[in-house]
Nucleic acid binder design. Sequence first.
DNA 1: TGCGAATCACTACATTTGTAGTTGCCGAAT
DNA 2: ATTCGGCAACTACAAATGTAGTGATTCGCA
Lengths: 126, 126
Amino acid sequence: MPSLPDISESEWNLMEALWESSPQTASELTKTLRPTMNWAENTVRTLLTRLIDKGAIKTGENSSGTRTYLPAVKREACVRAEGESFMQRIFGGAAKPLLVHFAQNSKLTAEEVRELKKILDQSLNS
Amino acid sequence: MPSLPDISESEWNLMEALWESSPQTASELTKTLRPTMNWAENTVRTLLTRLIDKGAIKTGENSSGTRTYLPAVKREACVRAEGESFMQRIFGGAAKPLLVHFAQNSKLTAEEVRELKKILDQSLNS
DNA sequence: TGCGAATCACTACATTTGTAGTTGCCGAAT
DNA sequence: ATTCGGCAACTACAAATGTAGTGATTCGCA
């Protein structure tokens, strides 16, 4: 178990951009994120450095010799870790209350409910 | 919308203790939390002060004139807020992917699955 | 009636996070 | 060669968080 790094909220946005498409250079990332985050490029660079320190991303180099960045951890694993941590913090680690909570607090379409029920079933016999 | 305060992880533990039983004095809380957190009483007091500043708790006084603390916000509301924020951060605000994720990553008993399905149904017609 | 324990109000201090700014270097276009 | 725009390395700095320590008050008890 590589024991995943702790990714902060701002950092998470960066990671999403990289999970979505990588490698990217710092300036590419800045442009990618501009619509949502509107960060200065230096902000992006700082976050990149921190993510490298944390071991969440690695670097490479593109054809023109510019440094590129790419994830060193899988999104799914990070999502699981975040989910675990959240479930622990708020629901004492119990999945059912969590599921009940979100089921009750969300408006779902009939179709979504159908899908979810199917998944619930699969979470049993498989 | 009272716009709930931002409660940190350590603070959340304190809140849980108060939601569980209140009012409590600082030293009572310290004892209550000792098994789980093992905090110095001053740590508890600092957190209490911060929670007051944030408007998450209020104070009273017990029969012997010692200050007591009690929640100023409802647990359910805070859970909803935390849940919203988590769902936003990790699942882009979409409930279905979140539910799918936790449904897939949890081992549930047949009974729990039954219950959840019922709740999913109710989340529709009501 | 001074003392030790409990209660408070302040202060402390390292980390983490959010969000940049500053400086130095390098290569391509005047 | 000068110059200017990227790129990279460092530095900055305030707010939030985790986790106490110190000093002043007070109140029951020896």
